[in-house]
Write a protein that binds this DNA or RNA. Structure first.
Lengths: 159, 159
DNA sequence: GCATCTTCTCTCGACATCGAGATATCTCAT
DNA sequence: ATGAGATATCTCGATGTCGAGAGAAGATGC
């Protein structure tokens, strides 16, 4: 807890990576106990909170490539948690919807998940949370802005 | 940047995951451009800063399972960056050491890496860094403490 | 109407990781 | 010495992810 007098960039990176790793492992415990991976859980959670979506729409939310989405949906469909339905207005699309069993399952699991997260952040004061939130947001945005400039940049420049 | 008035635990988790994801992608750009994955890079970096180590010692530093370490060392050995040497005092052990080529390679790449990290955290004031550091450390420790209690606990209890 | 471009999903092959188990070696109490 | 247990590394099979590309279907321009 006692931070060194000067926080170098590598130190910050290490502690970020470690914090995410530990938190991720902690969060995954309850999820893995139900036989799901984190991606599957996130897919179901998005469906619970946003309603039926197309595969690519879910993929955008959970940051998964299309190939990964196909197998993610396959997995949760196999277990009867979601259903693929074809859309009459656009036959390329598969609309993914929770089944009643899936809704019940993810509702319970998400409640547990929230409880886990509360425990994880219980040791933080409100101001600490605020500082963490704004700092992480800054880093995230900086990284994202610095990563993109491969293709999109000259696309913007010359359009 | 403008944080909501109350930062819920799920919000904090999301922003942490996103920040790590973006930062990780950003950091990996330069590394992947050299044909290495993040694990390989960390292995080489540890060797650069700590000198020759055994496979399991490196695995402890970079948080990789033994099976993953074997293939990680295989990869960097294949490229001539490290060398496995047997230890006469303990023949179970393989001592991993950087080759001259490997040392040169990782020295350059690490310099680039540090520069990238500086850029990533350039937008943060010293106090922001401190707050981030201590907050992330707290979360990491909390998560780690909450994840372990599976096996080690009764080992401690009854020893 | 028809050709072309784009979008959506799926298949395929490659990759990094892990857990479990095999093997070789060392340590230590008897 | 010797046998039991610990330790270090490796092999094997499974998993989840991704990029590239295929195929179907919608959108657009002529």
């Amino acid at each position: 807890m006692s931070a060194p007098s000067h926080i170098s960039a590598p130190k910050l990176w290490i502690v970020l990576a470690r914090a995410y790793g530990s938190a991720s492992a902690y969060v995954q415990r309850a999820i893995a106990a139900q036989g799901l991976c984190l991606s599957d859980f996130m897919v179901l959670e998005v469906l619970l909170h946003k309603g039926p979506l197309t595969i690519s729409a879910i993929g955008d939310k959970v940051l998964l490539a299309s190939a990964s989405m196909t197998s993610a949906i396959d997995r949760v469909e196999q277990r009867g948690f979601v259903q693929r339905t074809t859309c009459s207005s656009d036959r390329r699309i598969r609309l993914i919807a929770l089944t009643p069993a899936g809704r019940h399952f993810i509702t319970d699991l998400f409640a547990q998940h929230q409880q886990d997260l509360e425990l994880l952040t219980a040791g933080l004061t409100e101001t600490e949370r605020k500082h963490l939130y704004s700092g992480l947001k800054k880093i995230g945005l900086t990284a994202q802005a610095a990563t993109v400039p491969d293709l999109p940049q000259d696309h913007i420049k010359f359009s």
